[in-house]
Simulated assay, not measured.
Amino acid sequence: MQTNWQIGSLFGIPLFLDPLWFLILGLTTLNFGLAYQQWGTVAGWGAGLIMALLLFVSVLLHELGHSLVAQSQGIKVNSITLFLFGGVAAIEEESETPGLAFQVAIAGPAVSVILFFLLGLIATVIPDSNLLHEMTGDLSRINLVVALFNLIPGLPLDGGQVLKAALWKITGNRFQAVHWAARSGQILGYSAIALGFIIDFLTGEFITGLWVILIGWFAVRNANSYDRLTTLQETLLNLVAADSMTRNFRVVDANQTLREFADLYLLETTVPEVYFAAADGRYRGLVGINDLRTTERSEWENQTLQSIVHPLTAIPTVMESSSLAEVINKLESEQLPLITVISPADTVAGIIDRGDIVQALAQRLNLPITSSEIKRIKEEGNFPPGLQLGVIAKSVEK
């Protein structure tokens, strides 16, 4: 369920606020407001609120850096969200090369460094006796901290993305690069959690220690997500149609009349089935039940199934060797309930629906998906909302 609030859009990218953003807005306002009290109560708290808002404007510009470079590569950016730990740009696909991936990764820190220099330059021309001088200088330094922090080499930080691009370039394997960068993020995250406890124990700075622990937890959680997502992407490319297809279809005589077909097969079951017609040892095509229903019943005695079948060349198909990513993309883009799998001999090898795909993934990755859930997916014809296979398959199959 979407809990974020949309506050507008920039360059066609929707902007969202996480409700917890208001918590960090309040804490940031408190921090700066207390720091500026020498300028007076009203001026100090007003400046604190302005600084808190400008901090998030800086974060927004940082994320726009990533987003605009991604858009320049033809990659869709679904949203930018400001939340407790800063901001995140939801970029739909990976760049096509390590060099392009590096450009997207480094763009955010580059924007922050540019803001550091620009704001620092502005601060030098404002008199020291002016509150704006202190505010501009603080905001300049904060942008430098944002850039340096994000360059820490571990996912989900930008430095982890830079590391991933470098490892991808060296190894030639994007998936392996993500796994290694995610492992770096996990190590850094657990180290931050340990550091937070040490700060609490040795200094008594409970709030500081808790904040470091939360940042570490965030890093570990998201590094794990990157790792799992990459494993799923690899699996979608490694598993092929033959690994998940079933033979839950019937082969019927293409020369029988429509009446004979209806009496033999349609009257005996209320569960929709898939029928392929064959004659003389060859598949003639898929039997369209709707085509039968639209045919005048007076013609059922005279017409054969060959008159209503859809040839294999005219229906959506994939080869046995097609990756599951390709199968999913075809199912989703053409809004198909199922798809026919063709063997190298150009015969029907099987059929695949969304339930078959989820079942194959569950078996390969040991996912906790029950048979009743598989049955529901087959009946509803949709992937589970928590397993966005359509989006994931699109991101890896180009």
Rank of each mutant, 00 (worst) to 15 (best):
L23S: 12
E273C: 05
V220R: 00
E379G: 11
G86S: 13
Y283A: 02
N4C: 12
Q73F: 15
E234S: 14
S184D: 02
I315V: 13
D138Q: 15
A192V: 03
F56V: 05
V146I: 10
F85R: 07
L121Y: 03
Y36F: 15
V348D: 07
L305R: 11
E96P: 00
F206E: 12
F11C: 14
L338T: 03
A349Y: 04
I114W: 09
T347N: 15
I199H: 14
L331K: 01
Y265G: 06
D356Y: 01
I315L: 06
L236V: 08
G209H: 00
I392T: 12
P368S: 13
T246C: 12
P98K: 07
V391P: 00
H66L: 02
A362R: 10
E134C: 06
A165Y: 00
I342K: 05
I289C: 09
R376M: 09
L131N: 05
L232Y: 03
T81E: 05
N329A: 02
T203M: 09
Q38D: 04
I7C: 08
Q38F: 10
N150R: 11
I50S: 08
R364P: 01
D253I: 06
G196H: 10
A110P: 00
I80G: 00
Y226R: 00
S321K: 14
V341R: 07
T203Q: 11
K394E: 11
S395R: 00
I126R: 03
E273N: 09
P311H: 07
P385Y: 12
F56W: 08
T294Q: 15
L60T: 08
N366R: 14
V88K: 01
L118Y: 12
S9L: 10
H310N: 09
S129C: 07
L55R: 02
G355V: 00
S395G: 05
S323Y: 11
D253K: 06
G204E: 07
S79A: 15
L53Q: 13
G204D: 08
N382M: 13
L25W: 06
Q6A: 13
D263K: 00
A277G: 02
V88D: 04
Y190K: 05
A70Q: 02
S184L: 01
N302K: 12
Q6S: 15
Q103R: 04
V252L: 11
V212G: 01
Q335W: 05
H133V: 11
A360T: 00
V341M: 13
G108M: 11
I308C: 02
E234K: 13
A223M: 04
W300C: 07
A262T: 10
T295C: 05
E299S: 15
K76T: 07
I342T: 03
W21E: 01
W45S: 04
V309L: 05
L155V: 01
L264V: 07
D253W: 05
V57S: 14
L64M: 11
V309P: 11
L195N: 04
Q103T: 10
L229K: 02
S298T: 11
G172W: 08
Q335P: 00
G185Q: 04
F383C: 12
L30M: 15
W300K: 10
W168Q: 03
Y265P: 02
M51G: 07
A242V: 00
L387Y: 03
K394R: 10
